[in-house]
């Protein structure tokens, strides 16, 4: 292996290093070749003495990665990071708006079933106010009451389920902020 080959392997393998650091290290090796040649050695002999450039680069990278500051394990800063992450999830990714929309739909269903159940009262008001009795209206409102009761049952179990999901979502948020899991 000659000097150019040795240096190009190092340069390629150390591409993730900061440029200044990489260039300084490469310069060290370049100078080493120059001194070696002054001492009467060939490029091949010098490369042989330097050793495997792949191994050297792997060592340098391992050392560099060890010294990279890790995200602080300090629980306070961890909580802040978690809060920011949850904020992104909650607001940027629309989890909260979506949840609110689902709850709004549920409220409408509750109102709808209540109206259906109470529709005979509306018919009664109609009879009293307009003093006009129609049996078809009466039967229609009784049928609507039946529908309303069925809808109300569905809405009730849907509400219980929605509440469960919402509570567990909030608990999950809290547990992440506290750092427990």
């Amino acid at each position: 292996m000659n000097k150019a080959q040795f240096l190009s392997i190092l340069r390629k393998m150390l591409s993730s290093l900061p440029l200044k650091e990489r260039n300084e290290l490469l310069e060290d090796y370049e100078h080493h070749y120059a001194f070696g040649q002054n001492a009467g050695k060939t490029e091949e002999e010098i490369s042989e003495e330097l050793g495997n450039p792949h191994e050297i680069a792997a060592e340098v990278l391992a050392e560099y990665n060890r010294n990279q500051p890790l995200i602080s394990s300090n629980s306070r800063s961890r909580s802040i990071m978690a809060c920011i992450g949850l904020f992104m999830l909650n607001f940027v990714l629309c989890v909260v708006p979506l949840g609110l929309a689902i709850w709004a739909v549920w409220v409408c269903l509750v109102a709808g079933s209540a109206l259906l159940i109470l529709s005979p009262l509306v018919a009664l008001f109609d009879f009293v106010y307009n003093s006009y009795f129609s049996s078809s209206k009466l039967f229609a409102t009784i049928a609507m009451t039946g529908l309303g009761i069925m809808l109300a049952m569905g809405v009730f179990s849907l509400g219980a389920r929605l509440k469960k999901v919402t509570v567990s979502y909030i608990n999950w948020n809290m547990s992440i902020i506290r750092g427990g899991r």
């Binding site: 650091e21 300084e24 290290l25 060290d28 090796y29 080493h32 003495e49 330097l50 050793g51 495997n52 450039p53 191994e55 050297i56 060592e59 340098v60 050392e63």
Partner: peptide
């Protein structure tokens, strides 16, 4: 391997 010297010196 003499090449190991330079990373060591930098450290």
């Amino acid at each position: 391997a003499e090449g190991a010297l330079y990373p060591l010196l930098r450290r």
